[in-house]
Nucleic acid binder design. Sequence first.
DNA 1: TTGACATATTCCCATATGGGAATATATTGA
DNA 2: TCAATATATTCCCATATGGGAATATGTCAA
Lengths: 131, 131
Amino acid sequence: MPRASTTSDAFNAVAEPRRRDILNYLALQERSVNEIVDSLSMEQPSVSKHLRVLKDVGLVNVRRDGRNMFYRTNADAIRPLHEWASTFERFWRHQLNQIKNLAERKANEQQPNSPTNFKPRSKNDFDRDKN
Amino acid sequence: MPRASTTSDAFNAVAEPRRRDILNYLALQERSVNEIVDSLSMEQPSVSKHLRVLKDVGLVNVRRDGRNMFYRTNADAIRPLHEWASTFERFWRHQLNQIKNLAERKANEQQPNSPTNFKPRSKNDFDRDKN
DNA sequence: TTGACATATTCCCATATGGGAATATATTGA
DNA sequence: TCAATATATTCCCATATGGGAATATGTCAA
């Protein structure tokens, strides 16, 4: 079995760095294909192909105006990604607190009664108490 | 040029759904390979290979204990993903407000003075005022 | 040392990829 | 109708993929 198709979901579509560049660029304002080509210094067929992938997974919307196609990021399609990543927010917060607490404990072992590193109990002790 | 390697960054590593499953599972608690195999109903070699990818991009940490290898999600490595997605938060908020405002406007056109859909100005009018 | 258990690696393969180059399609204005 | 412009598609190709099956490596316990 090969890798899942780039058009299978937002996760796969967004794995390609140039597609993230395009999404960043199209978030603020709709743009024609040629504007993307010029601004991001990519080949036109390459841009068209990336836009096709992004459109297939709903990450961009298109509008025709004469000869031009105006693309724009559909930010809402990025939400699943954001929500999945948010799931881990409490864990990296936890990790940061552990590191912080370790450093404080180390500091207090060095100079138990030094006024510079004395620290009363604070909300960080939430993490110190468990494990 | 083929697709960028799965081990090239967190974005590519996380594009594979089973790897996301593994990261979810290992976020709360470290687990041996066999625990992953049993809990997620995957083949052992498959799990080992996915773990290799996740380890290569720093998404998991490992610890050996006798015959067992205990893996755990390194949540911090997911932050770049979260931060990139967060960039778009204000855009999807904006889009939602536009839709909401449109609906409200439509409702008020239907029954201009109906008490059920009357709505005083609120913070949503932030979006109505521009464009 | 040997056997059992835990995990990792290797080999095979069908498949989708992204870039480059060339070409096709669509739309406008004359 | 035709030339110019804008965009999309096609073809070619080297390459990494993930699963399955088989096997290798590592560690313990007796």
